[in-house]
C-alpha cells in the first residue's frame, strides 16, 4: 500500500547555516491521524512546509501518496489540504466570501461550489456566522473556517500546523471533534504538528516525537508511554509493622516494580495501572490493611520526552514564550 507521507533522510539548512532538519525519516500510513509532537523550534513547521511543497529540502526526499514533492509539486498540492499555523483568511471579508474566493482558487466547479460551501459551513457550525466579517470571529471560529476551506476540494491528506494554538480548551475540543468526525467519515489521513502533548495523546493514532531537527521516538501513544517506567502509584497505608510481609504481598503481583518505601508510604510503578491496581487493592484488603491515600501518576508523553532529552517539553516551550504569544495575537487579530 502506498504511504500517505514518506520522508527519507530529510535535511534542511536555511541560508545562514541554520540546520532546521537533520536527517528525518517518517512513514505515515493512509487513514490515520499522525501527530508530530515537539517543542517550538524543533523543526516541525519546516518539515510541514517541505511536505506541503512550500520549501525545498537541502537533502533527502518527501513523497505524498507516491508523488515527490520536489518534482511533482502540483500533483501533491491537489491531494493535500493545509492549514498553516498563522491565520490564512482575509479578515475584511465575510466567512462565506473567504470560502467562495478559495473555492475559485482551488478550481471547485461552479455548479457544485455553493453546495460544498454550505455543507461545510453547516458541518463546522458556522452557517449563522457566515455573513459576518471574519475580523469579528473568535479564534475557534477562525480555525474551523480555515479547516472547512482546507476540506473543500476533498483532500486525501489534511496537514495542520499547530491547529489549536492560542485556543481555549472548549474551542480546542470543538475543533478536534469536527476534525475527527470528518476524518472518520471520509477516511482521510491527518498529519498535524503540535506542542500540546495532551492533544497528541488524545487524538493521534501515531506520534513522532521531534526535537532539534530529528525524530527522537515514534510509536502509538501507549507504546511510547510504556517505554518510560510506566504509571507511578503511591499508597499510604494504615500501618507498616512488618515491612517484609508488605513487600511480600506486592511481590506476588505481576507487572509492578517497587520504587521506594518510606514509613507508611510505598511507591511503585506498573505498565498498566487500570489492570494492576484492582489486584493490589484486593490483596491489601485480604491482609486487613487500610489505605488512607492513593496517588496515581499516569505516564505522559512529557515523561517520554524527559527520558529521551533530559528536559521537559514545557521547558523548551518556555524560551519561545514570546513567539507563541505573538502567534496567538496573529491568529486572534481582528477579534
Amino acid at each position: 500500500m502506498v504511504l500517505a507521507i514518506e520522508v527519507r533522510g530529510l535535511v534542511k539548512i536555511y541560508p545562514g547555516g541554520i540546520k532546521a532538519l537533520n536527517g528525518v525519516d517518517l512513514d505515515v500510513d493512509e487513514g490515520i491521524i499522525y501527530a508530530l509532537l515537539g517543542p517550538n523550534g524543533a523543526g516541525k513547521t519546516t518539515l510541514i512546509r517541505i511536505i506541503t511543497t512550500q520549501l525545498r529540502q537541502t537533502d533527502g526526499y518527501v513523497k505524498v501518496f507516491g508523488h515527490d514533492t520536489s518534482t511533482q509539486g502540483s500533483n501533491v498540492r491537489s491531494l493535500i489540504g493545509y492549514v498553516p499555523q498563522e491565520m490564512s483568511l482575509w479578515s475584511d471579508l465575510t466567512g462565506y466570501e473567504n470560502m467562495l474566493i478559495y473555492s475559485k482558487i482551488y478550481g471547485i466547479p461552479s455548479n457544485s461550489r455553493k453546495k460544498i460551501i454550505e455543507e461545510l459551513l453547516e458541518f463546522m457550525d458556522l452557517r449563522e456566522a457566515s455573513n459576518r466579517m471574519v475580523r469579528i470571529y473568535s479564534g475557534g471560529m477562525i480555525r474551523r473556517l480555515e479547516i472547512a476551506i482546507a476540506l473543500m476540494h476533498r483532500p486525501r491528506l489534511l496537514v495542520l500546523d499547530e491547529p489549536t494554538i492560542g485556543l481555549d480548551p472548549a474551542a480546542r475540543r470543538l475543533v478536534w471533534g469536527k476534525i475527527t468526525e470528518y476524518c472518520k467519515e471520509y477516511n482521510m489521513t491527518i498529519f498535524f504538528a503540535t506542542h500540546y502533548m495532551d492533544e497528541a495523546d488524545r487524538y493521534a493514532n501515531y506520534i513522532a516525537l521531534m526535537n532539534r531537527g530529528i525524530i527522537i521516538a515514534r510509536g502509538k501513544p501507549e507504546e511510547l508511554k510504556q517505554n518510560v517506567e510506566g504509571d507511578r502509584i503511591t499508597l499510604k497505608l494504615s500501618s507498616i509493622d512488618d515491612n517484609i510481609s508488605i513487600l511480600n504481598i506486592f511481590s506476588e503481583i505481576e507487572g509492578i516494580t517497587i520504587l521506594k518505601t518510606d514509613g507508611d508510604t510505598i511507591e511503585f510503578s506498573t505498565s498498566n495501572v487500570s489492570y494492576t491496581l484492582p489486584k493490589i487493592l484486593e490483596k491489601l484488603f485480604q491482609n486487613n490493611l487500610k489505605i488512607y491515600e492513593i496517588k496515581i501518576h499516569e505516564a505522559t508523553l512529557d515523561d517520554v520526552f524527559i527520558k529521551l532529552t533530559g528536559r521537559r517539553l514545557s521547558e523548551e516551550e518556555y524560551g519561545r514564550y514570546r513567539e507563541a504569544i505573538t502567534m496567538r495575537k496573529m491568529i486572534r487579530r481582528g477579534s
Binding site: 512546509r49 506541503t52 511543497t53 512550500q54 502540483s74 498540492r77 491537489s78 493535500i80 493545509y82 492549514v83 498553516p84 499555523q85 498563522e86 491565520m87 490564512s88 483568511l89 482575509w90 478559495y102 482558487i105 482551488y106 478550481g107 476551506i149 496573529m330 487579530r333
Partner: peptide, 13 residues
C-alpha cells in the same frame, strides 16, 4: 506575516 501567502502557494494554481 499572516498565513495567506503560505495557503495560496500550497493551492494547485
Amino acid at each position: 506575516d499572516l498565513g495567506i501567502l503560505k495557503k495560496l502557494i500550497t493551492s494547485p494554481i
